[in-house]
């Protein structure tokens, strides 16, 4: 069985995901994430025959490939209009450095 999730882990995951998690929701979130892990832990206990191949994705088909051909890009004015801030040429973001 997996370890329960502690507050520190929740805070760390929230920070990585840039989620502003209110202080009073941390314990609740820890408990919910713990439930998810408990469920996954149950799946881990299923005994599999030796000949089962490892499984890397939920879709069984492979090789959806496109040829190296150009398609039209989106007009700049239109695509920049999705951004909170732009100067007509560039996206503008708060200073990074």
């Amino acid at each position: 069985m997996s370890e329960p999730i502690d507050r520190k882990t929740v805070e760390s995951v929230a920070r990585l995901a840039r989620i502003d998690l209110p202080e009073d929701q941390i314990d609740d979130t820890a408990s919910k994430l713990g439930d998810v892990l408990t469920y996954i832990g149950q799946l881990e206990q299923v005994e599999l025959p030796d000949d089962v191949e490892p499984f890397f994705g939920a879709i069984e088909s492979v090789n959806a490939i496109r040829p190296d051909q150009l398609t039209d890009s989106v007009d700049r004015e239109q695509i920049l209009s999705n951004a909170p801030d732009a100067d007509g040429e560039f996206y503008q973001v708060p200073p990074v450095l």
């Binding site: 100067d87 503008q92 973001v93 200073p95 450095l97």
Partner: peptide
Amino acid sequence: HDESQRGGNSKI
């Protein structure tokens, strides 16, 4: 990035 040290926006 704004190199002027005046804290201007970064352009992407």
